[in-house]
Amino acid sequence: MNNIAGNKPALVWATHISVAFLVLLWLLPTLGLFVSSFRTADQIASSGWWRALFATEQTLTLRTAAPETQALEGDLYVIEGNIFADTGEEAPTELTAWGTSSRDVSAYEPGETAELRDGERLTIEADGSYRVESPVEMEGSRGQRVFITGLVPPRLTFENYQRVLFSGSTTDGMQKAFFNTLTVTIPATVIPILVAAFAAYALAWMDFKGRALLIAMIVALLVVPLQLALIPLLKLHLNIGIGKGYMGVWLAHTGFGLPMAVYLLRNYIAGLPRDIIENARVDGATEFQIFTRIILPLSFPALASFAIFQFLWTWNDLLVAKVFLIDASGQTTVMTAQIVELMGTRGGDWEILATAAFVSIAVPLFVFFFMQKYLVRGLLAGSVK
C-alpha cells in the first residue's frame, strides 16, 4: 500500500519541509526590512533587526557642559552634570564604558578617572553623572568630547514613514514617485493583457494563413534579450516624439510583455473544450461574442495570473524606466529610481532606505495576496456538465 500514488509519507514530509523552508527563506528578509523601517539609524547600525525589542549596546558621541558653566571649589575649577541630559529619547539606561579618543572608545570603566590636558581630570559614573576638575580656569566654547558606550532601550518610531511619505521633499519623499509608479504600472499591465487576449484567441481558434508562422515568431521573440532592443526602440520612440514620457514606457512594457502573454494565453485558450466553442458557433454567436462571453470568463484565472506577474515585473522595473522616462526634473521618477537616488544622496540613512524599500514592496505584496486565489482556483469548474 505504501507504493500507491499519494500515499508516500517520506515524500510528503520532504515536500512539506522544503516548502516551509522556502517560505521562511522568503519571509525572513521581508520581516527584517519591515522591522528595520521602524528603527532609528543608530539602532540599525548597532544591532540586527531581531534585536529590535531588546536593549542594545550603542556608542554615542557626547560632550560635557561648556567651560562657561565651571565653578570654583577651593583650588579647583569644577564642571558637573549628567552626560545623558541632552541626548533625547535614546539616552542609554546604563553606561558600560567610555573614552575620550575615537581610537579607544572603551578606554575607561564607569567610575574611573581620565587625565586630560593641562592637568584636567574627568570622571564619569555608570548613571552618566560626570565631574571635570582643573587646577586652572578652563577655556574654550565647547565641552570635552566623550565617547559613551551604554545600553539603549528599544524604540520603534513612525518618523521614518512620516519623512518618506509626507515630508514633501524631493530628496526624501516617495509620494510623488509612488503615484508615478502607479501611472506606469497600471496601463503597462492592462494594455498587454487586452492585446494578448485577442491575439491568443485568434491564434487558438481562428483559421487563417500564416497562423503557424506567427506562433513560431512569438516563441522566437521570447528569447530576445530585453537589453538588445532598448537602444533601437528608444531611437524609434525619440523619432516619433514619445521617448520622454509615459506613452513611451507604456509601449515599451507592452512590447516586452506581449510575447510571453500571447504564448501563455494561447496555450490556455487552446486547451478549452472544443464543444463549447463549436456549440456557440452553431447557435449563431459571432467570434467577438464567443470571445467576450465565453473565452474571457473561462480564461479569467489565466488572465489574472499573467496580470500578477506583469504587475510585479513592471512595478519593480528600473532599467526600462531609466531608459524611456527621461526627465531631469524628477517629475516622472518611479519608486525604484527614487530608491537609487536615496542610496546616492542618503547612503548613511539606512532607516530611510529601509522604509522606502518596504513602501516599494508593500503594493506588490498586497496585489499578490489579493489575487493569489486565482492561481489555484479550478480553471474550468462548472463550465462543462
Rank of each mutant, 00 (worst) to 15 (best):
T286F: 00
L213K: 12
L226G: 11
P273F: 10
H253I: 02
A220Q: 08
A216M: 12
A216V: 12
L296C: 04
T286V: 04
R293S: 15
F291T: 00
W313F: 15
I294Y: 06
P225H: 12
I240V: 15
L312A: 11
L264C: 11
D317R: 04
Y263S: 09
V219A: 15
D317E: 07
R293H: 10
V224C: 10
R281L: 06
I242T: 04
A220G: 15
A252Q: 07
R274C: 06
Q227P: 13
F256S: 00
Q310T: 12
I215T: 10
A307W: 07
L265Y: 00
A220C: 12
F309T: 05
L214D: 08
H253G: 06
P297R: 07
L265H: 03
L222W: 10
K244H: 11
F311C: 06
I276C: 07
N239W: 07
V320F: 09
I215N: 11
A261H: 01
L233C: 05
G245I: 05
L213A: 15
I269N: 01
M247G: 15
L226P: 06
A307P: 06
R211K: 13
A216Q: 13
G284D: 04
I231W: 14
A285W: 02
F311Q: 02
K209I: 11
I290A: 02
G243T: 02
L230W: 05
R293L: 10
A285Q: 09
I242E: 02
K209A: 13
L265Q: 01
F208R: 03
L296V: 13
R211P: 11
L312I: 14
H253Y: 10
F309P: 00
A212N: 15
I269Q: 00
I218C: 06
D283T: 09
L296F: 02
N316C: 07
S299I: 01
I290E: 01
E278L: 14
